[in-house]
Amino acid sequence: MNIQEYADREMLAIDVANALAGELEAALLHNDTVALAVPGGTTPGPVFDSLCAADLEWDRVRVLPTDERCVPADHERSNERLIRERLLTNRASVSQYIPLYVPGAEPEAALPEVESLIAPVLPLSILVLGMGEDMHTASLFPGMDGLDKALDSQAPTLIVARTDVQPEPRISLTAPVLDGALSKHLIIYGQAKRDVLDKAMSMPPEEAPIAAVLSGMTVHWAE
């Protein structure tokens, strides 16, 4: 794991966007298509604002969320909404988006359909993650039902996450899919999350799910 510190969040966003653009360009030299998995939430927005303008063959990039809330794509809590508004715009608007949530279907029933869309783009070329102060990443929450299955080396591509602390079920990429990305980036802000990350490094993934994906990770941190 490599931790890169930045003077401020604006500099972090610019530098991470440049790094991701460079990795995408390099991956496109050797592959017909590449897969970029990104989180929702507020943290990656500024990175997306810069990345979307990169001069790349975006029509060969497949973008998917690391996880998704089971809400309509125009819902304020939808990761797809953020990704479309902040990343799939400007030059990146020609990218193909792979959704995790199928409207109108029970999440568990829709998993085979969604997994069939994801299978051709694995392994992920580039992964961007966030982390909560509870040490969750994507929608792998400590203590949730099915976490052991999601962490297993033989886990399926996707899992439905249902927790008491979230208002709706979520669909998430599982630990081996996340950890199998060829390049991995974690973006965190503030001293509290830096302290949490330091703590998670010595904890088992069952208690700190982020620990399952830290090997080879580049961590980007700013206060």
Score class of each variant (00 low, 15 high):
Gly40Leu: 05
Arg62Ile: 02
Arg194Gln: 13
Leu122Met: 11
Leu122Gly: 05
Leu24Asp: 06
Glu113Gly: 09
Glu10Ser: 02
Glu10Val: 04
Ala110Glu: 01
Pro176Lys: 13
Val16Trp: 04
Ala208Ile: 15
Gly40Glu: 08
Glu85Thr: 10
Gly40Met: 09
Asp152Val: 13
Thr89Phe: 06
His75Ala: 15
Thr89Tyr: 04
Val160Cys: 07
Ala119Trp: 07
Val196Trp: 13
Thr137Leu: 09
Asn2Lys: 13
Thr89Asn: 11
Glu168Thr: 00
Val63Gln: 03
Pro39Tyr: 08
Asp49Gln: 02
Val102Cys: 08
Glu68Arg: 08
Leu147Lys: 03
Leu20Cys: 02
Arg77Val: 00
Ala110Thr: 10
Leu197Pro: 09
Arg162Tyr: 07
Tyr6Lys: 08
Tyr189Asn: 03
Ile98Ser: 03
Gln166Ser: 10
Glu85Pro: 02
Thr163Phe: 07
Ala35Ser: 15
Leu127His: 12
Leu56Pro: 05
Arg170Met: 03
Pro39Phe: 06
Ile83Gln: 03
Asp15Lys: 00
Ser215Val: 12
Ala35Met: 07
Glu57Trp: 03
Pro99Leu: 08
Ser215Thr: 14
Thr137Asn: 08
Val16Asn: 04
Glu108Asp: 13
Val16Ser: 03
Val61Ala: 05
Val177Pro: 11
Ala27Ser: 15
Asp8Gly: 00
Pro142Gly: 05
Ile14Cys: 09
Leu122Val: 12
Pro176His: 09
Ala27Tyr: 10
Lys184Pro: 09
Leu151Thr: 09
Pro169Arg: 10
Ala161Gly: 03
Ala208Cys: 14
Arg91Ser: 04
Gly180Glu: 09
Leu28Arg: 10
Leu29Gln: 07
Ala105Leu: 13
Pro209Phe: 13
Ala192Met: 10
Leu182Ser: 14
Met217Arg: 11
Arg69Ile: 04
Ala155Asp: 03
Leu214Asp: 14
Gln4Ile: 04
Val47Lys: 00
Ser139Lys: 09
Ala37Leu: 00
Gly22Gln: 11
Thr66Val: 14
Glu133Asn: 11
Ala17Glu: 07
Leu56Asp: 02
Arg77Met: 06
Ala212Phe: 14
Ala110Asp: 06
Pro44Trp: 07
Leu147Thr: 11
Leu87Pro: 10
Leu178Ser: 08
Val177Phe: 10
Ser139Leu: 08
Ile118Cys: 01
Ala119Tyr: 11
Leu124His: 10
Leu51Met: 05
Ala211Cys: 13
Lys149Gln: 08
Leu117Arg: 15
Ser183Gln: 13
Phe141Arg: 06
Pro65Asn: 12
Val196Phe: 06
Glu207Ile: 12
Pro46His: 04
Tyr6Ala: 06
Ile210Cys: 13
Lys149Cys: 01
Met131Tyr: 08
Tyr6Met: 13
Ala181Gly: 14
Ala7Val: 14
Asn90Tyr: 01
Pro107Arg: 07
Ser215Lys: 15
Val213Lys: 01
Leu12Asp: 03
